[in-house]
Write a protein that binds this DNA or RNA. Structure first.
Length: 1070
RNA sequence: GGGCCAAUAGCUCAAUCAGGUUGAGCGCCACUCUGAUAAGGUGGAGGCUCUCGGUUCAAAUCCGAGUUGGCCCA
């Protein structure tokens, strides 16, 4: 890219991006940029590793775009940023994908296939997915260390997990325990609560009578899981709830039933009783200690037994007004709450169900059946035993395995835990050490979650994961005397077998058979692998390959910034806090930027089944990577979800097109004049700068300040908005318009050079500011503007600093006022029906304050040009323009307190009043109808507003909804104005014809005019010199057009025929 | 079922914290400009500010209840 070289006429994002990719390759742009900052202050960013199944969707694309914009911004601010991307590659999702691929149905198939082979298949699959993600991320210009990502399956990363876990064990936070967990019976493993997905399903809904011992009657419970009845251990009630004893009659038989008072009607209706009577009113407390008989005592002979079982206890999870009966069937073997309460009551924990969801021999009659399939038989048996009060079905949400969609079961098994509940206070304290954007996410959601978090079950009975580094004595499998290995080196030292710490892979197949023998005891490994959430929880040191590489840990850890979507509150934000606290006693990150999810155009989540997914590559295809990134980055990154919008993305492409036009406009002139920015910088042309140059430079300073502030507050959307406002409104629509004529000047002039230097500086800094957002187009523009002494890539530039010298807030306001006046003037012109091409004799600016007067006085000429006015007349604030009427605008903050409920009515009257002088007396007179005797209008309540008089068009102008004056356009015609107007009409049409003929700008022509109206023809001929000059016509007269064009036009109702031909052609034809 | 967040023009969002006549950009329509030209300018249409209550002289804004959507949890 040579300086001021030829560029595409049109912004073509695809060709441009391809060129930039090639260019980046050629000059090693990324590597140079990283190297350029290698001496800078360290900034430790940690990438939340995406899971390697599936490809990048709009959400991940948004996430990576955000990371990219902040990494680039930080680099430009001088930081040496850690930018190693990561990939989360273990876990059940990949296992189930591979199982599907291989046609497996359960664990047996895997065992037959061979653990080692299966692990290899999973590894291959994850690697393949990783490649896909890498190329997706690269495709929209994300600059991270793609050659060296951290992978959770690498030995050094797995070691980081072992190390963290062993540190937690050192702090006595690792234990093995008998716990109620969610089990997927197909995957035959525990799954985390946040891996449970809830779906609506139809389940049995049964009411069961438990006959009371030592007294008449039964208590009634309700459940949707008949299969848990065999494990019933106790019944829970609300101690403070109201219950009733009901004598109910059905088919001539009477029963005494106990249920919650609030539910007794519902329950009896379900049971289709003929009649009933409340015979007893009691509280939950009265029921405590009542004993009952197990309804399936015969079918399940080995049912739970012991002191205190089959009794009524208080339980705080009971709701006497919710669904059910107010008495809750409790089976500690099949429910978390039941488990905790059962443990508290020191009742036995009975779970006659295996990890595969099949009843064990403890389930008696039901042994060998899959639990859900035993529901019918259990209900039949209850019926036969006279215990079934009612049965039906219910539609409710029930947990399913996130991967294979199998209904989960609550069972009790032996699992390994990090007992984070032991350090709950430390966790809550540590939260305070992190800064969140937005802060409510930390103080509400995150805090709530941490407060309620149970111990972390980290063990999974699966294959594709990091093996638990736990060895237990051969004859036992609990946490007594366990050995936790922290590093590969330690492993090599302690195991009985030969292990090369450099080469060992650490996956299950390689460590399963390793044993440790110490003090005469042989230890074997616990066969479980880690919950995949544990993998990413150690990313803050895994990224650094710590502990195997300890060169950077002390300097960098903890992370300065992490940046993920809000689902990670319960995911990575949490797992890192838990692991960081358990292992290190600290939160492993300082700042969190939490963004939302990408929703579709209707605000629903994108989902494959709904078919509303927008693929990032389709978006890139339609609008280019830069436009897509800018769209994504224009969304608030703090908590809110983003609604996808093709329109908005298209708008971003339009803005880039505008930037492209702004950029390419001055190039030919600069090239022609040999403008050399390294010799002619802004400072050297200072004396020749015109006001508009100083203004655009002042706006540039304000834009830089604003952007920096927003980016530092993690509001890149506002930073981008500020930049686009500057480029589109200030540079394109105002500055370029204002300097065009200076650039067309064929003579060398100080003014022209000053304009070059100004626009050069503006463009250079604008693309530098844009670079983090739209790295491709910024690079190409920068490359065209930059010289030998500049960097190879815009991304090596320093973030542009505010230069105090050019800051000029007063000038900014001046021009803002002028632009407001101009805009109002254009409006008034249109109302008066006068095109801009036709001059108007005068424009009157009625200023409300001295600032407006100053602004107009300093820029009268500019205003005359812009509004095509022969004269600008200024009416100062202390005088009034004679022809005006007035009305009043009410200030509600004054009116409200004064008039109370009638304030609205008074406001309307004031708005509608018409008076000839701006006095309160006149105004009060005009609104006397709505005023009571003792009421008056005060100065503070109103501001007077001018009303347009007849024959003159007027439009108010102001800043930020604050009126500052009115512009009146006097559009009356004189002969001179008509002459110029018609001449301009002719010129415009000749120009258009020149253009149609593709004539060079410099080319001379011969011109012929035939105008149907003599008066108009005379008026036009008065301006012949002007026409000749503007259209470069050397000859005027009769033309036989051979080599040119002839066309008829209608101008303001007058027909005119115009013919022209290039002079070279005209000569040839003679 | 619970917690958090959101709901304002056809679309994307401001204005909500500190109550005072709802704004911008995009899109649409009309007009206009023409040496950036698949650009530019001006105007117009388009809002019971999700609903229902409450507080207040005054509510998009504060409070309560609900509806819809999103995330998380059960």
């Amino acid at each position: 890219m040579s300086r001021f070289g030829e560029v595409d006429d049109q912004y073509d994002p695809h060709a441009l991006e391809q060129r930039v990719f090639d260019y980046w390759d050629d000059v090693d742009a990324y590597e140079q940029t990283v190297e350029h900052r290698s001496d800078g202050e360290s900034f430790f960013f940690v990438d939340g590793p995406p899971y390697t199944s599936g490809s990048a969707h709009m959400g991940t694309t948004w996430n990576k775009s955000l990371k990219d914009v902040y990494i680039r911004f930080l680099r430009m601010q001088g930081y040496d940023v850690t930018d190693r991307p990561g990939y989360d590659m273990h876990g059940l999702p990949i296992e189930t994908k591979v199982e599907e691929k291989l046609g497996f149905e359960n664990k047996k198939d895997i065992e037959e296939f061979g653990e080692e082979n299966f692990i290899q298949e999973c590894k291959d699959y994850a690697d393949e997915q990783l490649e896909g993600l890498q190329s997706d991320f690269k495709s929209f210009g994300v600059w991270m260390d793609w050659d060296n990502p951290y992978r959770t399956v690498s030995p050094e990363y797995m070691e980081a997990a072992w190390w963290g876990f062993s540190k937690a064990a050192d702090r006595d936070l690792v234990e093995q325990g008998h716990r109620s967990i969610s089990q997927c019976p197909r995957c035959e493993t525990a799954i985390a609560n946040n891996e449970v997905e809830y779906e609506d399903v139809e389940d049995p809904s049964i009411y069961v009578k438990f006959d009371l011992e030592d007294r008449e009657g039964s208590i009634v419970i309700w459940t949707t899981t008949p299969w848990t009845i065999p494990a019933n251990t106790f019944v829970a009630v609300d101690e403070e709830g109201d219950y009733v004893g009901v004598r109910a009659e059905k088919d001539g038989e009477e029963e005494l039933l106990y249920v919650a008072e609030a539910k007794h009607e519902d329950v009896l209706k379900e049971g289709r009783y003929d009649d009933y009577e409340v015979v007893e009113e009691l509280t939950g407390e009265d029921l405590l200690g009542w004993s009952y008989e197990h309804p399936l005592a015969e079918e399940v002979p080995d049912h739970v037994d012991g002191e205190g079982v089959f009794e009524v206890y208080a339980g705080d999870y009971v709701d006497t007004h919710g669904s059910g009966t107010g008495l809750v069937h409790s089976a500690p073997g099949h429910g978390e709450e039941d488990f905790y309460r059962g443990t508290e009551l020191e009742l036995p924990i009975f779970c006659p169900v295996g990890g595969d969801g099949v009843y064990t021999d403890e389930a008696g009659k039901y042994e060998g059946q899959f639990v859900k399939e035993a529901d019918d038989e259990i209900m039949a048996d209850l019926e036969a035993n006279g215990a079934l009060l009612a049965s039906g079905t219910v539609n409710h949400s029930y947990g399913h395995c996130w991967r294979c969609d199998t209904g989960i079961l609550q069972i009790v098994t032996d699992q390994w835990f990090i007992t984070i509940t032991d350090v709950k206070d430390e966790l809550l304290d540590n939260i305070e050490d992190s800064e969140w954007y937005p802060q409510w996410a930390r103080d509400n959601r995150f805090r709530d979650f941490v407060e309620e978090a149970p111990d972390w079950n980290v063990s999974r009975q699966r294959y594709w994961g990091i093996p638990l580094p736990v060895w237990t004595p051969e004859d036992r499998d609990d946490d007594e005397d366990m050995i936790v290995v922290g590093t590969r080196e330690e492993l090599a030292e302690r195991v009985d077998q030969d292990v090369d710490p450099e080469a060992v892979d650490l996956h299950k197949d390689t460590v399963d058979d390793l044993t440790i023998t110490e003090d005469g005891t042989t230890y074997t490994r616990v066969p479980d692998v880690f919950d995949v959430w544990l993998d990413s929880s150690v990313a803050s040191w895994g990224t650094l390959d710590f502990p195997s590489d300890d060169s950077r840990f002390d300097e960098l850890w903890p992370a300065d910034l992490i940046l993920e979507a809000h689902d990670q509150t319960r995911g990575w934000f949490w797992s890192q806090l838990g692991m960081g606290t358990a292992a290190m006693g600290e939160i492993p990150y300082d700042k969190v930027l939490m963004h939302g999810h990408a929703l579709d155009e209707d605000g629903r989540k994108m989902s494959k089944s709904v078919g509303n997914v927008v693929e990032p590559d389709v978006a890139i295809e339609r609008h280019g990577s830069d436009a897509m990134r800018m769209f994504l980055l224009s969304a608030n990154p703090q908590g809110d979800d983003m609604r996808f919008s093709w329109d908005e993305m298209g708008t971003m492409e339009n803005h880039l097109r505008t930037l492209w036009n702004v950029f390419r406009f001055p190039l030919p002139y600069m090239r022609l004049d040999g403008f050399e920015p390294s010799e002619t910088d802004l400072e050297s042309v200072d004396d020749d700068l015109e006001l508009v140059d100083e203004w655009v430079l002042a706006r540039l300073q304000a834009t830089k300040a604003e952007m920096t502030e927003h980016l530092e507050a993690f509001r890149q959307d506002r930073a981008l908005e500020a930049l686009l406002e500057f480029v589109v409104e200030d540079v394109s629509r105002f500055y370029i318009q204002a300097v065009r004529e200076r650039m067309w000047d064929e003579e060398d002039s100080g003014s022209k050079t000053a304009a070059y230097a100004t626009i050069y500086r503006v463009l250079r800094e604008s693309v530098t500011l844009l670079a983090p957002f739209a790295p491709f187009v910024s690079e190409e523009i920068y490359g065209t503007l930059a010289g030998e002494a500049d960097h190879d890539t815009v991304h090596m530039e320093d973030w542009p600093a505010v230069e105090e010298y050019w800051v000029d807030e007063q000038l900014e306001e001046d021009v803002a006022l002028l632009r407001a006046i101009e805009e109002a003037g254009a409006n008034a012109r249109q109302q008066a029906g006068r095109k801009l091409r036709w001059p108007v004799p005068r424009v009157v600016v009625a200023a409300d304050d001295q600032r407006v007067v100053e602004a107009v006085e300093r820029h009268t000429t500019l205003l005359e040009e812009r509004l095509n006015a022969r004269e600008i007349e200024l009416v100062s604030p202390d005088s009034q323009w004679g022809e005006l009427d007035y009305s009043a605008e009410a200030d509600m903050s004054e009116l409200g307190p004064a008039f109370g409920g009638r304030a609205g009515e008074v406001m309307t009257a004031l708005n509608e009043a018409r008076i000839e002088e701006t006095t309160l007396e006149a105004l009060e007179e005009a609104v006397s109808d709505v005023l009571e005797d003792d009421e008056s209008i005060t100065e503070a309540m109103v501001s007077f507003v001018t009303e347009t008089p007849d024959g003159v068009a007027g439009t108010a102008f102001g800043l930020d909804n604050d009126d500052r004056g009115v512009v009146y356009v006097d559009a009356s015609l004189t002969e001179d104005i008509e002459s110029e107007g018609y001449a301009r009409e002719v010129i415009r049409r000749v120009q258009e014809m020149r253009k149609d003929l593709d004539l060079d700008v410099e080319e001379r022509i011969a011109l012929d005019l035939a105008i149907d109206d003599d008066r108009v023809a005379d008026l036009v001929s008065e301006r012949e010199a002007l026409i000749r000059e503007e259209v470069r016509a050397d000859e005027l007269g009769d033309l036989e057009v051979d080599n040119g064009a002839r066309k008829e036009w209608e101008v303001e109702g007058v027909m005119m025929e115009i013919a022209l031909e290039p002079l070279a052609a005209a000569d040839a034809s003679k």
